[in-house]
């Protein structure tokens, strides 16, 4: 399954500056694993021990994966994934 992943500015140092990369995987978990295999270190910026980091938003097409099945969300050929750090603070 080839999927496009949009990389936010702050993570582009991992992808050599690329804002759009293509990876494979049939679930979000697999996509993140493949991302990390290709761009070592990026996985840690997305995940912590409990799963997706609270202040990282990941969208499958138009939907926040928190409203789907999180890391277990099924990904199909041609889907588009967007990663955006939350804009938040105190």
């Amino acid at each position: 399954m080839a999927v496009e992943v949009r990389i936010p500015t702050i993570l582009r140092p991992y992808t050599g500056g690329e804002k759009l990369v293509t990876v494979s995987g049939d679930s979000l978990q697999a996509v993140v694993a493949d991302l990390d295999a290709n761009y070592p270190g990026i996985g840690e910026r997305l995940l912590d021990d409990s799963g997706l980091r609270r202040f990282v938003n990941v969208y499958l097409n138009d939907e926040d994966v928190r409203f789907l099945s999180g890391l277990a969300t099924t990904v199909s050929d041609g889907d588009s994934i967007t990663i955006l750090p939350a804009v938040a603070g105190g």
């Binding site: 938003n57 926040d64 967007t82 955006l84 939350a86 804009v87 938040a88 603070g89 105190g90």
Partner: peptide
């Protein structure tokens, strides 16, 4: 004591900026 952009608004905002070749020059709260 806290702020956070709504997740759907955030996606719409970044897509729109991308389409218009814009970036967030100021982020305020």
């Amino acid at each position: 004591t806290f702020y956070e952009f709504d997740s759907a608004d955030l996606l719409a905002l970044y897509r729109e900026m991308d389409d218009r070749d814009e970036e967030p020059v100021v982020i305020y709260h």
